[in-house]
Design a protein around this nucleic acid. Structure first.
Lengths: 335, 335
DNA sequence: TTTAATTACGTAAACGTTTTCGCGTATCCG
DNA sequence: CGGATACGCGAAAACGTTTACGTAATTAAA
């Protein structure tokens, strides 16, 4: 609808060729500083900005990356995106967002739609519904891709994760030191390396302290809020655990609600601890002991890696970048 | 890096022209069903997807919209994005995200970068730092744009908002009915219509109940967390309000912390109420009375409006869509 | 002085689509 | 049977860039 200011227009007004204009705009060594300045000035004057479609088509560079995640309405992911965006801005890149809602089919549909040159690269935290290794094995060969937090193992791709095993081990020890001997585990991400690592950290910490692992104390996450609440209530009622270790943030509300409904006091009757990036954890009743992942830094780091790849910079040989989570002790575990 | 499957390739394999292939792919009436089926089958077989850049360049349609917001790491906005994305998927659109971090210059830079055909339209919730009416007056003439929640008034553009004035009035009445007479106001978004409406609702409710408005009971939001805490502490210490009415979520943590540090019990000594979409409001200590905006629906509604515009559908004459917020009474106001 | 190298710019093709226009064949009606 | 109509398809231009290559003028080297 505007008056179409493009390279041709600039060329006409300056009486030079469009090739010269293009090169000047891209600061090519072939063009004299004098000409460059004429072009730059006019471009600014006319508010010229290059047409991205034309530029993409010719150069095969989109200056765009995609972020494929389960959901933005989650503290971890929204913070990650914030980190990603910050880096993307530094590099002058645009950011597309795709939410899979934990649906692997949506995930595949989205990523497939990105392979035709829509983006230069992908950042993803995969869905937990299924572990489709074959698909990603092929995918990483077709487009630069960096996994963060929820990753696929054994692939030729960079992974940015946290010390899930170690921090889960440490958190479990914290519960044990607080006197707990019947620690229930609220199990999320069971199909993914992160979920498995957290669970292993929990199990190994029990073992290291001579506590038997009891299968009945494990509750697996369901998509449905109500059913999680029910499960936890049954767990609390039937097996009387003295602690709930939640491996994902989504269990917090049902866990707290279950305790209230059963008149169980936290932390007196049951201690609670959860992986979480809730900013209001310290304001909960009682304040919640959390394992806080460096979500913002994970986003930044993952984006940095992707841009290194896109700029053909050497990655510091390491394909795995592991950031440290932190255990923040609060009232829900008696601190 | 792949083996380049494009229209030309399809045309060669089927021994027809690229024009026919293109038309068949777009389900043109000019092409026989027989030919269409041949094309569709081969396209599926070869995993053909059209090159977006080429398509954009020629057709001036990007199938992409931009969302420009202050920050994704905020319950309201992340929920809005979720709603936007849902609608965008239905229409087969892609979604670009831009975070202004309340910086109007970033906002202008971003939106300007979208005017050269990168997107078909924009959804935005503007930054609170400044009210630059002149800029947006020009902008809405250049590209389809829908405002949501944080809008500009008196512009020829669709606005999706909530009943800020009414709900703030109602919330203030709730505090008054709970016995409060010295209700402090934590003032956010003061440059924007939403902020002004909320403040007006508060003031008018006071007036309606014969309570004098006291300037000293108003605290204005600062970017810096620590200074908000200090301000609230001074407010509580110097003027002894019996209620805090927060117009934005960002005041919740400093408000709660200030009360704790000053040993003021909520709701006994001071009642607290806030605009907020915190999912954990009911778990806070004490549980927080909130004005919850229908963030998800706002996102959906705004996106729907934009797509109506993009499809040249008649908008139901109304430029303003106003959704209802809901006051959820909890312990922090004595319920 | 001749030749080679460099500098500064232009020509034109190419990227993969969409779309206008036109053309031949088949169908229909009088 | 002649003319009009519709149908199905192809040729080619166009979208706005980037870039390989050519070229003329200038400078440096021999």
């Amino acid at each position: 609808m505007a008056e179409a200011v493009n390279i041709k227009r600039l060329a006409q007004e300056l009486n030079i060729s469009i090739a010269t204009v293009s090169k000047a705009l891209n600061d090519s060594y072939e063009i004299s500083l004098k000409t460059k300045n004429r072009v730059w000035n006019l471009a600014k004057e006319l508010n010229y900005t290059p047409n991205p479609a034309a530029s993409n088509l010719r150069s095969n560079k989109t200056k765009t990356i995609a972020v494929v995640i389960p959901c933005v309405a989650n503290n971890f992911f929204s913070l990650s995106i914030k980190g990603i965006e910050e880096i993307a801005r530094q590099y002058g890149y645009h950011v597309l967002i795709y939410q899979t809602h934990e649906n692997i089919e949506a995930e595949i549909t989205f990523t497939n739609s990105l392979l035709n040159g829509r983006v230069d690269g992908i950042l993803t935290s995969v869905s937990s519904s299924e572990y489709n290794s074959e698909y990603y094995t092929k995918l990483v060969k077709k487009i630069p891709l960096v996994f963060f937090d929820r990753v696929y193992d054994n692939l030729d791709a960079v992974r940015v994760t946290t010390d899930d095993y170690e921090i889960a081990f440490q958190a479990t020890e914290h519960l044990i030191e607080a006197g707990c001997t019947k620690i229930a585990y609220l199990f999320g991400l069971e199909n993914l390396p992160a979920g498995k690592a957290r669970f292993a950290g929990y199990q190994d910490a029990l073992k290291a302290h001579g506590i038997a692992f009891i299968e009945q104390l494990v509750v697996k996450y369901h998509d449905d809020e109500e059913s999680n609440l029910q499960q936890i209530k049954e767990l609390l009622g039937n097996y009387k655990p003295d602690a709930l270790f939640s491996s994902i943030e989504e269990f917090i509300i049902p866990a707290y609600c279950a305790c209230r409904e059963l008149d169980l006091q936290i932390p007196n009757h049951v201690k609670v601890l959860s992986f979480s990036n809730l900013s209001t954890a310290k304001l909960l009743n009682p304040s919640l002991t959390t394992i806080s992942q460096p979500a913002f830094e994970i986003g930044r780091e993952a984006a940095k890696c992707l841009f290194k790849i896109l700029n053909n910079k050497q990655l510091d040989d390491e394909q795995d970048i592991i950031l440290k989570s932190v255990l923040i002790k609060r009232e829900s575990t008696g601190c």
